[in-house]
Design a protein around this nucleic acid. Sequence first.
DNA 1: GCGCACCATGAATACGTATGAGGGCCTTGA
DNA 2: TCAAGGCCCTCATACGTATTCATGGTGCGC
Lengths: 341, 341
Amino acid sequence: MAGKATSFDIAQLAGVSQPTVSRALRGSPTVSEPTRLRIEAIAQQLNYKVDKNASNLRLQETRTLALLFFEDPTPDETGINPFFLSMLGSITRTCALRGYDLLISFQQLSANWHVDYEDSRKADGIILLGYGDYELYREKLEKLVEQETHFVRWGFAQEGQPGTTIGCDNFRGGLDAARHLMQHGRRRIAFLGDASSHYPEFQDRYRGCCEAQGAEGILVDPARQVDALNSQEAGYDAANILVGSGTKFDAVFAASDTIAIGAMKALRERGLDIPGDIAIVGFDDMPAATMTHPPLTTIQQDYKRAGEVLVDSLLQQIRNEKASTAVLPAKLIVRQSCGAC
Amino acid sequence: MAGKATSFDIAQLAGVSQPTVSRALRGSPTVSEPTRLRIEAIAQQLNYKVDKNASNLRLQETRTLALLFFEDPTPDETGINPFFLSMLGSITRTCALRGYDLLISFQQLSANWHVDYEDSRKADGIILLGYGDYELYREKLEKLVEQETHFVRWGFAQEGQPGTTIGCDNFRGGLDAARHLMQHGRRRIAFLGDASSHYPEFQDRYRGCCEAQGAEGILVDPARQVDALNSQEAGYDAANILVGSGTKFDAVFAASDTIAIGAMKALRERGLDIPGDIAIVGFDDMPAATMTHPPLTTIQQDYKRAGEVLVDSLLQQIRNEKASTAVLPAKLIVRQSCGAC
DNA sequence: GCGCACCATGAATACGTATGAGGGCCTTGA
DNA sequence: TCAAGGCCCTCATACGTATTCATGGTGCGC
């Protein structure tokens, strides 16, 4: 037997026709029990596996999802958001459970990769994972919708957005972070992170932070907000700018753990004690948050649940069911950088 | 035009036959220039993409590689080795450059996933990434070889191993780590990590460490080696055992950064100063190594190059060329935990 | 003006699977 | 004994592409 076994090979050995083999292996009730067992035995013996290409061609589906990581600044492999990497495990596992394979890529969204994948029938749908300037890729999303591509996106969820979005409750996360800091006596909370509408996740976190302070009667000082993109360097620079400006603050709420880690380095270099002088809270609960010194108090995004919801929502779309947009809860994880322990 | 455009649709619009369309789009020289241009224009206008399933079926190849993460202990998504995640970026990028897609999975190696993937023609070859008890999966590898599956593995490279392996120079890495510690006055180097043949990477690192000490006339005390699997908890426990045993040591060489981070926590809790009392060197240079306090001196594995070599070696095999086994250099990255700065 | 070579294209077919339509054969009931 | 009906299977075909072989037309040389 040269090459891989086909359903014809099995048919010949079993003394039946090829269609009977196909039906037997798919569990069709029109094949009699003994015939089915005989075919299954031969298939196993030949180590037969259904040829996915042929099967997919016939069925007009791929049983494969595509995952696209994109990051707005240079998509250097070092720059992959660790939070997304954590989510990757959950996504692959969920795909496997649902009987789907996962194709993965780190291309830029600006390439027309997304169009290719579904059109060329490599995948039945696409999962988009990325931070970045929302305005820049909004029109890409609109094009996807227009072409009726099945996709879900991880990010901030808002009315009137193109496509289906799954995200966490950034506003509530910011609210909880600020509340927690205030409960431990901090009254001057600085925010490190871009608060413009181009980075809506960060903006929502900042809004929650402001809301919590307002509820306590604290007037939010805009000077305590310093823009920062999502990198350690940006956090480092932002913290230095903040200290250098002379603005008084006794706590930092960083828009991400990555920013927080950079900020901690800068604060420590300036001789400030964490959490003695400055309490600090991050966002994401990435793995490295437990390894900082002191361990970082942060707002946890449930990456495990997020992966499941992303996959299931996408599969709903593929089955032409109504895809559910969802907002997942964010949870405060208290460690030591906030001074609560 | 219902559904996606096919080559027949284009043929009709261009007033030619389907084979001509196929030839034109693949750049066959037997199609005249004007015809080709006309066809290309129509294809673009219809947003035509070659159906991969049909194409692959016809060509009997998939232009896809499969990546399998496996970890010997419970493959919990939290437990994914960060070093492998770093490599992922490089692998996907290299695949993209070579015109291949990447399928990904976190299954256990014990499932017969690996067999499925190539047999069911979902992928032309497999990349295996995993740490763990080598003896346990050796027979799996032998089975892969027997079935003539194309695969490459990241890990320790040794004569007589089944299949093709790409790895880094663990022995040399261990040697350099110990030398560096000795150059800064440390004479009693402890090793945290399993040194049995079940974990050959760790064993090689330990061997290098011993060799370096021997060259300086230092008698290696076996009491300074404590077994540890690759986790923070294991590092934490091992360091506690070491301290508790009363064995004297002034430096720790950890078999991985993860172990080192756990050990640092334990040492600090015992009131030991790093690097004042104990110098410490890790292995891997995972992203978190820069975030520890103090930043961790470590042996860097070049994940970027590793990803390229893995992909290219696998592609060589697929083209039936002789696949090259390679050992990549390991490089000492000096930070502050070793007391050199 | 005829034959030959050559070029561009069309016709036919294969890749391996899945399914609707149809056909034997056996059972059952009158 | 024969018709009806159910069961199990085969026949034919479709999915969309890529290639081999065949064909028609053109130009060139003698």
